[in-house]
């Protein structure tokens, strides 16, 4: 299973990569939106799921979300990491087509549960 992780905080990114890899995921991580979007558009990628932060340099999480959802012929689930805890933002995230969100700070098993739930469907 291949996960695309977009998170600009170095510490959180590294921790998540470590955690997801320990749970036998393959992880490709980026610290900005535009590199991540460029990666999704490469033909050889075979992403199964995207986890992205909202607040990112260059291109934000919203653009990543839109780019992933616009990929032709594929339905890649997206989990958004929000740090708001504000309901409006979370609703907006769903409006943009996100499949799930996790509010930071979060416990890693929660994220794992959400990933598994999305992958079952």
């Amino acid at each position: 299973m291949n996960i695309l992780l977009v998170e600009d905080d170095e510490m959180l990114q590294k921790s998540l990569v470590f955690y997801l890899q320990s749970n036998r995921f393959k992880v490709k991580a980026f610290d900005n939106g535009s590199d991540a979007i460029a990666y999704t558009e490469t033909p050889e990628n075979n992403i199964d799921l995207v986890i992205t932060d909202l607040n990112l340099p260059f291109a934000g999480g919203r653009q990543v979300l839109q780019a992933v959802k616009a990929l032709p012929g594929r339905e890649i689930p997206v989990i958004v990491l929000t740090s708001s805890g504000v309901e409006a933002t979370e609703l907006e995230v769903f409006d943009l087509g996100a499949d799930e969100f996790v509010t930071k700070p979060f416990s890693p098993p929660v994220l794992l549960k959400r990933i598994n739930k999305l992958m079952e469907n």
């Binding site: 510490m11 932060d53 700070p105």
Partner: peptide, 11 residues
């Protein structure tokens, strides 16, 4: 805002 992620990890 940025620092919140790191703070979150160390609780």
């Amino acid at each position: 805002h940025h620092l919140k992620s790191s703070f979150g990890i160390i609780g």
